[in-house]
């Protein structure tokens, strides 16, 4: 029996500073692979995977890795146009990488479509002792911008499926809502056009009244 085709194809872009582990997250999620030495991670720049969002619905995620180099930062809009979701990745051991996430968020809010769904992932939690991790600021920031916040480790395969599951679910809802809104706009325009009745007939002249009747 053929598998049901996905309810939607969703484009997800990975954004974040260089070397925070974007590609490792992607590789772990799509291929369940991890390499400490970053061998051939360039080959994982684009990967796609089907994700079940509930018992009956699946979506196909096309995940785009992007260059983290600052020199190419201004090219971001070319990558995230038409994206349904963005995963912003930072390194939990590097505060500057989280500041960079904030600048990405500002830019996305300004330039990407309103319907883009955001999630923030604090990666490399394996490098820090869990009990010493204080990510209150990061979590509160994510809440304030309407994004989900996750902690992940590509090395230990922790939290990664949850990130993409969350993105897939919310992006599907957002896409369906946008499609419904577009349909609603269309339907309000069409009846207005249909409702215009053009009478191409000369109105009948009122019967002449005879003054002597």
């Amino acid at each position: 029996m053929r598998a049901a085709s996905p309810a939607a194809n969703l484009k997800v872009v990975l954004l974040g500073e260089g070397r925070v582990g974007k590609t490792s997250l992607l590789l772990r999620f799509a291929k369940d692979e991890f390499s400490d030495t970053q061998q051939a991670t360039i080959q994982a720049s684009f990967l796609s995977k089907k994700v079940l969002v509930d018992a009956e619905t699946s979506v196909a995620l096309s995940i785009w890795d992007t260059a983290g180099q600052e020199r190419f930062h201004s090219l971001g809009p070319i990558y995230y146009r038409d994206a349904d979701a963005a995963l912003l990745v930072y390194d939990v051991t590097d505060k500057d990488s989280f500041d960079r996430v904030k600048s990405w968020v500002k830019e996305l809010k300004k330039m990407a479509g309103r319907n883009i769904v955001l999630a923030i992932a604090g990666n490399k939690i394996d490098l820090d002792r869990q009990e010493e991790l204080d990510l209150t600021e990061q979590t509160e920031y994510a809440e304030s911008i309407g994004a989900s916040h996750f902690t992940t480790s590509a090395k230990l395969n922790k939290g990664i499926d949850a990130v993409f599951q969350d993105l897939a679910k919310r992006a599907l809802v957002s896409k369906r809502r946008a499609a419904a809104a577009a349909e609603a706009v269309e339907s309000t325009l069409v009846p207005r056009r249909q409702g215009t009745l053009i009478i191409d007939e000369r109105p009948k002249a009122p019967p002449k009244r005879s003054c002597c009747s």
Binding site: T23, Q38, Q39, A40, T41, S45, T66, A67, G68, Q69
Partner: peptide, 26 residues
């Protein structure tokens, strides 16, 4: 390009770094 990188990597004595997505545009 990817095959070329893999070949270079195999032939190289350095194993600390391989170009990644960050370097794809370069």
């Amino acid at each position: 390009m990817l095959e070329g990188i893999s070949r270079t990597k195999r032939a190289s004595a350095r194993d600390d770094f391989v170009p990644c997505t960050d370097d794809l545009l370069s």
